[in-house]
Amino acid sequence: MDPNDSFREFMAAHQQSLMRTAYLLTGDAHLAEDLLQSVLLKVLSRWPKLADVASPQAYARKALINQYISWRRRLARATELPRAEPPDRPYSTEDSTVVRIAMLRALAQLPPRQRAVIVLRYYEDLTEHETAKLLRCSLGTVKSHAHHVLARLRVLAPELAPKFAETEDLKGARR
Rank of each mutant, 00 (worst) to 15 (best):
A78Y: 13
A78C: 05
T79H: 10
T79N: 12
T79A: 13
T79R: 13
E80C: 12
E80L: 15
L81R: 07
P82V: 09
R83Q: 14
R83G: 07
A84V: 15
A84F: 10
A84K: 14
E85R: 15
P86S: 07
P87L: 08
D88V: 15
D88E: 15
P90R: 12
T93K: 11
T93S: 08
T93Q: 10
D95G: 00
D95F: 02
S96H: 15
S96P: 14
T97H: 12
T97R: 15
V98I: 13
V98A: 11
V99Y: 09
R100F: 07
R100M: 12
I101R: 08
A102S: 13
L104I: 13
L104H: 14
R105C: 09
A106N: 01
A106C: 00
A106S: 03
A106T: 01
L107H: 01
L107G: 01
A108D: 12
A108P: 06
A108H: 05
Q109C: 03
Q109T: 02
Q109G: 04
L110G: 07
P111I: 10
P111D: 13
P111Y: 11
P112N: 01
P112R: 02
Q114T: 03
Q114W: 05
Q114M: 09
Q114H: 11
R115I: 00
R115H: 01
A116P: 09
V117T: 05
V119T: 03
V119N: 00
V119I: 04
V119S: 02
R121D: 00
Y122F: 10
Y122K: 02
E124I: 09
E124G: 02
D125S: 03
D125I: 02
L126S: 00
T127D: 00
E128L: 11
E128W: 11
H129I: 11
H129N: 10
H129M: 11
E130F: 04
E130K: 08
T131D: 01
T131Q: 00
T131K: 03
A132K: 00
A132N: 00
K133V: 15
L134M: 12
L134W: 00
L135I: 06
L135Q: 05
R136Y: 15
R136F: 14
C137M: 12
S138C: 09
L139F: 08
G140W: 02
G140A: 04
T141K: 06
V142P: 08
K143W: 11
K143S: 15
K143H: 13
K143Q: 14
K143T: 15
K143G: 14
S144L: 14
S144Q: 13
S144V: 14
S144Y: 14
H145G: 05
H145V: 04
H145F: 08
A146N: 05
A146M: 08
H147L: 14
H147R: 15
H148Q: 13
V149I: 15
V149W: 08
A151T: 12
R152N: 04
R152L: 06
L153E: 03
R154C: 05
V155G: 06
L156R: 01
L156Y: 01
A157E: 04
E159D: 09
L160P: 06
L160Q: 06
A161N: 00
K163V: 11
K163H: 10
F164C: 04
A165T: 11
E166T: 09
T167I: 07
T167A: 11
E168K: 08
D169V: 08
D169G: 05
L170E: 10
